[in-house]
Design a protein around this nucleic acid. Sequence first.
DNA 1: AATTTTAAAAATTTTGAAAATATCTTCCAA
DNA 2: TTGGAAGATATTTTCAAAATTTTTAAAATT
Lengths: 212, 212
Amino acid sequence: MRTTTPEIYEDLQRKLMTASFSPGEKLKPSALQGTYGCSANTIRDVLLRLSKVGLVEFEMQRGFRATRSSEERRSDVTRFRILLEQEGARGSMREGGVAWEARLSAAHHQLSHIEKKIARSDIAQGDMELWSDAEFGFHQTLIADCRSPLLIETFGHIYVQFRQQMVSQERDFGTNYFRAIIAEHQAILEAALARDEDHCSRAIYEHLKRNL
Amino acid sequence: MRTTTPEIYEDLQRKLMTASFSPGEKLKPSALQGTYGCSANTIRDVLLRLSKVGLVEFEMQRGFRATRSSEERRSDVTRFRILLEQEGARGSMREGGVAWEARLSAAHHQLSHIEKKIARSDIAQGDMELWSDAEFGFHQTLIADCRSPLLIETFGHIYVQFRQQMVSQERDFGTNYFRAIIAEHQAILEAALARDEDHCSRAIYEHLKRNL
DNA sequence: AATTTTAAAAATTTTGAAAATATCTTCCAA
DNA sequence: TTGGAAGATATTTTCAAAATTTTTAAAATT
């Protein structure tokens, strides 16, 4: 199998985020090398980079494993995400202009479109991946104009870890779940466009508290 | 020169934090390999790990460089540090027990000892490194009991970036500076021990605002 | 003179294998 | 049985060279 390194990175990232590797599972370069038709060192390189994002744990002399999952960790990731998203949204509401409002509306429109489709329960193959991307797009746009590259970057890392933790915890992701979050995203959008910082913070908390 | 990989990591980290590499300077494995008597790949490995902490920037196909420095970045790092430290201290004040108070007092005592020595201006060789470690110890202890491993880890990353940004910005680090921060650290300690969350947050802000 | 093309040099990434290190098994003694 | 060597196995790390890509500098074209 001929695969470029960026493709390997993307593939491993996706597999980590969709629990194709179970939490805590050992990731052995020598084992993965066969899958991608490259040398073990290339895998090592990619895993080192994925450990920056927090999808992979690395410990010297004892290799890599998919980040462990636990009640505590899920809660920790969620708390941290709430902190970053509240602060980021606050910043965007202060600094963002009409262009930001436009982008946020657009991102929400796209997200809401797919969420309504899923809520009608005609969920098709690949919809979850589309939804996940749209969800990220919305939340990322929410904080995008806060003028803190560091916060934005860290939020990106935390978001993928959040997804990683959530998929490994099977819960009801049925139509009920989507019906609920449609309203929550709507609330966040409205508060953000109204530049009501406290209300927006609360809406973000309400959206995520089920994972605490 | 015979050097183990952890030593290489430490040495590069120290050099990055003390501006032995100027901001934005290219870090070429093939060039550094000679310094440490190891292969270029070992350096690459170390640099990849340092990029997780944010001391090094990595871009695919174009290698590594010491993290760039700018007015904006300094301000960004400072803002982010304030956010994390305020939140972490808040958590410690809520969750920490007497043991935490004891550790915080101890860390402060050590820090204040060296700061007073420096303020008397009999600053000796290696004092800055001792001070830097003690400063980190104090601030880390401040947030240590917030029960958020993620926040603690991220704070560690941001702290070293903060140091990195500060050293590359020459400013008056004379006795005046130390006289000022002695009082600021004292204020943080007192508010923390009094479990006065708002006051502590303010003291943290006052301590760091000069870098905004 | 400015831009694009081309060729050479330099740097980065990848490889495959050897060396170092950790982990597991088996066996023996307490 | 329990605990711990000793050896066997597997994994991780390191290496030096090959392959790829980027950068630099010079030449050619507009």
